[in-house]
Computed example of a mutant assay.
Amino acid sequence: MLKHNEAKKGGFAMSILKWYPTTTVYDRLAGTTLDDLFQHFHRGLLTGNTETGDFTPHVELLEKKDSFVLRVELPGVKKEDVDISVNLGVLKIAGEVKGDVEDGSECRCSERTYGKFLRTFELPSTVDADAIAAVHEDGILEICLPKKKEALVEEKRIKIA
């Protein structure tokens, strides 16, 4: 009798198990603290994940003098399969990772994830929503979030008497 996630084909049996490394309380607390720091440091550019499938693309956020740059890992996803929109200060990135198993073939083992995804980000008031631009190249979606001119004013130093 075969157990869950175990397949037997032509005398070949394989069990696919996901491995989760053991974590300590410290590891969990450290992750939470880093997430909190990440959210606080970037002046309100908060990651509010809304998932509609098993796939959640990883992101990287950079801050430059005149803009934020959000990079999203989307390997194997065509730009036609991604939708980016902004509404009421929320940036939404939605799409789908499609399977590519050929007709007549049978998948014996797959660790890839397929399905729809949705990521949302609350934009800080310093971002100029009308000037947002995106480029998709080599599996990386790069979204440039320019800062408003008012946000680019340099800090004025005050002398203490």
Rank of each mutant, 00 (worst) to 15 (best):
A7K: 15
T22I: 01
I84T: 07
T113G: 09
V97A: 02
D54Q: 08
D36S: 10
F68A: 05
K98I: 00
K98F: 03
G76N: 07
A131Q: 12
G10Q: 13
L61D: 03
R112I: 04
F68M: 00
M14N: 06
V97Y: 01
L70H: 01
E73C: 04
G89P: 02
V82P: 01
H4M: 01
S125R: 05
D81A: 09
T23R: 08
R108G: 13
A131S: 10
C109K: 12
D54K: 03
D128C: 07
Y114I: 03
R119Y: 04
G95F: 00
K8T: 12
T56V: 11
V86D: 00
T126E: 14
V101S: 09
E73T: 03
E137V: 03
T120K: 14
E73V: 00
R112K: 13
E6Q: 13
T33E: 11
K116I: 04
G99R: 02
T126Y: 11
E73F: 06
I93W: 01
H42L: 13
S15N: 10
Q39Y: 10
K78F: 05
L88F: 08
A129K: 14
S85D: 07
N49D: 14
A134S: 15
T120R: 12
F38L: 15
S67N: 06
V59G: 05
D128A: 14
A131Y: 04
T126L: 13
T23C: 06
R43A: 13
D100G: 13
S67W: 00
F41P: 08
V72W: 05
G31V: 00
V101L: 12
L91K: 00
C109L: 10
T23Q: 10
K116H: 08
E122R: 15
A131M: 06
V127I: 15
D83H: 10
G44T: 09
D27Y: 01
L29Y: 08
L34F: 14
K92N: 11
G76F: 00
L17Y: 09
Y114L: 01
G95C: 03
H40N: 15
A94T: 11
E80K: 09
A30Y: 04
T47E: 13
P75E: 02
Y114Q: 05
F38I: 15
D130S: 12
E73A: 13
V101F: 02
E96H: 09
D81S: 03
V101N: 09
S125F: 08
F121C: 06
A134H: 11
S15A: 04
P75K: 08
E51H: 12
P21D: 01
V97Q: 01
C107W: 04
T50K: 13
S67E: 07
V90N: 02
L118Q: 14
T113K: 14
F55N: 08
S85A: 10
Y20P: 02
V25K: 03
